[in-house]
């Protein structure tokens, strides 16, 4: 009986260790397959080269890095104000009955698969931009709007509870000093929740940076340094999906190396997220 107890404890321990093993395996396999390619191409040439021409053995992913940053930045410009204001509304403004409707609405937004978002972007946003702007539709602007919508539930889901969790006495104190409800919320409650809101925004950055399928369908995928938000670009994620199907040799390794760069970006963002969450707890 005792031995069985002991054995099962180790079985559970083994299960717990799986996530460590998984992260280690992912790191090892990505880096082992990507770093040699970076070395062959040259780290500087790979990261800062502006030409991506696999046919001519030119592998510079600077346009893709820039593309990812532009698209993510655009998504934040759209998603952050709406997301944070919506969280404030849900936590401090809306009546309990309305909250019961809004919460599932946000959950629904979170549950829609990215391929469906992409399809929506393709049949609604792209034609809209083509008609109203001087653009062929598939552009940074389009991807930014779509991603802005997609990161909404991420931001709301993470920041709404932190705004709600702010001590009621802060709010009451502000009211007692004569501030209006709005002023109390925005000058006292929201600043008190700022580390949680920041963490939520970083979560949104991670989601936008890593999104692949939806972006691919609306961003145009031309590997170039754009000079207007109405032009198409290619992001790190779409670079991998676009070409992995037929790539061979160094081309293929360069795509894996692209994944490594994306992975490092994501790890940095994860670290920031954990650091902010931890500092918020203290």
């Amino acid at each position: 009986m005792r031995t069985r107890e002991k054995i099962m404890e180790y079985v559970f321990l083994l299960a717990a260790v799986i996530s460590i093993v998984a992260v280690a395996l992912i790191c090892v396999f990505l880096f082992a397959n990507g770093i040699p390619a970076m070395h062959k191409i040259g780290f500087a040439d790979f990261l800062t080269g502006t030409d991506w021409k696999p046919g001519n053995d030119k592998y510079g992913i600077f346009p893709m890095i820039l593309g990812s940053i532009y698209v993510t930045g655009g998504a934040l410009v759209i998603g952050v104000p709406i997301g944070v204001l919506m969280s404030v509304f849900m936590a401090r403004f809306c009546p309990a009955k309305l909250y019961k409707i809004l919460k599932p609405v946000v959950n629904l937004l979170a549950g829609i698969p990215s391929i469906v978002y992409g399809f929506f972007g393709l049949i609604v946003l792209v034609p809209f931009i083509r008609e109203h702007f001087d653009s062929n539709g598939q552009s940074i602007l389009c991807a930014a709007i779509l991603l802005g919508i997609m990161i909404l539930p991420t931001i709301i889901g993470a920041s709404e509870p932190t705004i709600r969790a702010v001590e009621q006495s802060y709010y009451e104190g502000a009211l007692a000093l004569g501030a209006t409800h709005e002023r109390s919320v925005f000058t006292v409650v929201v600043p008190a929740a700022k580390s949680g809101i920041l963490a939520a925004i970083i979560l949104g950055v991670g989601r936008a940076l890593g999104e692949t399928m939806a972006v691919m369908m609306v961003v145009g995928n031309q590997p170039r340094v754009p000079d207007s938000i109405l032009q198409g670009v290619r992001t790190l994620t779409t670079n991998i999906v676009m070409e992995m199907g037929y790539a061979t040799d160094l081309h293929r390794e360069a795509l894996i190396a692209t994944g490594v760069v994306l992975f490092v970006f994501i790890l940095i963002i994860n670290l920031c997220f954990s650091a902010i969450k931890r500092s918020g707890k203290e």
Partner: peptide, 23 residues
């Protein structure tokens, strides 16, 4: 374990795809 689980949550699906293909 918590830290790695958090890391796994943040990894985008395309990276999982790449890893799955390689591994």
């Amino acid at each position: 374990v918590r830290l790695t689980a958090e890391t796994l949550t943040g990894i985008p699906s395309i990276i999982y795809g790449l890893f799955g293909m390689l591994f």
